[in-house]
Design a protein around this nucleic acid. Structure first.
Lengths: 169, 169
DNA sequence: TATTCTTACTTGACTGAGCAAGTAATAATG
DNA sequence: CATTATTACTTGCTCAGTCAAGTAAGAATA
């Protein structure tokens, strides 16, 4: 028994493509995290924070800007920065130009950590994503990803606009 | 291969491809969950459990088999089933053929829920993943996903084989 | 200048997931 | 048949993430 009574777009090749992507969505994030966690007890997200700071002028960014780079909510970022601050890799200070803003700066130890972690992470990305693909496929992956991104942004009217909600409450 | 040699591969087109995928990995799961959560207070994972049961003979599966279908640890599944059991959509019973095994069965209400949720979820997948792509790209996505899956499975020696801990403790 | 936004976080309560340590039932072994 | 091992979960602990409710500083307005 299958449930294709309604929009039966999800079968055949479409279903195959979706299932293949779904498996990647399920396993790739954990696989990308694993070496970083194992070697440095650092999640991909925390690494991303350190990396963004390392690239910033003065190794310093305001929390909101950093949240943008990390694709993160401010609250998630705030907790993550607290964690890596506790490990001595970043330091927070009040922005002298705007007392509401908090600046996060990479410490010496934090810079050293990024420099150790970056090759590990690059190698993981290469091994899991780039190397298995042909040059053509790498281009296809970019195009496909951009189209999906675009669709997500359009769909995100469910966030901004209040579309018709079911009254099954 | 030149790829495995240097970590400096993450630049130019490679970096672009990776960054595009990384953004999708970050946003797509939440975007796929959103309509299900909004309309039915059901995560994609919980929906997957109900869907798997709906397709099973007698709408019943043992927990271990179900965990396989859901790509899930037994512990995660156990809690998820507890949740949806609490909402009256599944029922657990002891397997009469093997007292260690727990059988999860879909209730009438559970079946009704799957039948309501499935078109919503199909539509979301279609809107976010399939429709934005050309037919050719859907094929490319499948091939690319399969290659990445394969690479993950190879890399997964970190799970099965000795997790040699770092000596920087 | 005082009052009312608005911005930029931070934090408390709660939920879901992982790991490890149970528990109970079955299988294997002597 | 008693003992030991294995299987199939379940659960306690801990932690990361979300949402909503603070808090504090700067901006806008009267």
């Amino acid at each position: 028994m299958t449930y294709s009574s309604v929009p039966n777009l999800l079968k055949g090749d479409n279903l195959t493509s979706w299932a293949a992507l779904a498996t990647v969505l399920e396993w790739l994030p954990a696989a990308l995290d694993a070496p970083l966690v194992r070697d440095f007890d650092l999640t991909h997200f925390e690494y991303g924070i350190l990396f963004a700071l390392a690239d910033a002028p003065n190794q310093t960014l305001g929390m909101t800007v950093l949240a943008g780079y990390a694709n993160s909510s401010l609250s998630r970022l705030s907790r993550a920065v607290s964690r890596i601050e506790g490990r001595g890799w970043v330091q927070r200070s009040r922005d002298p130009l705007d007392g509401r803003s908090t600046l996060a700066s990479l410490t010496e130890a934090g810079l050293a950590m990024v420099e150790k972690a970056t090759p590990v992470h690059s190698r993981t990305v290469t091994k899991l994503v780039l190397e298995p693909l042909t040059t053509a496929q790498r281009g296809q992956l970019r195009d496909i990803s951009l189209r999906i991104q675009h669709a997500i942004r359009e769909q995100e009217s469910w966030r901004t606009i209040s579309t018709h909600s079911s009254d099954t409450d």
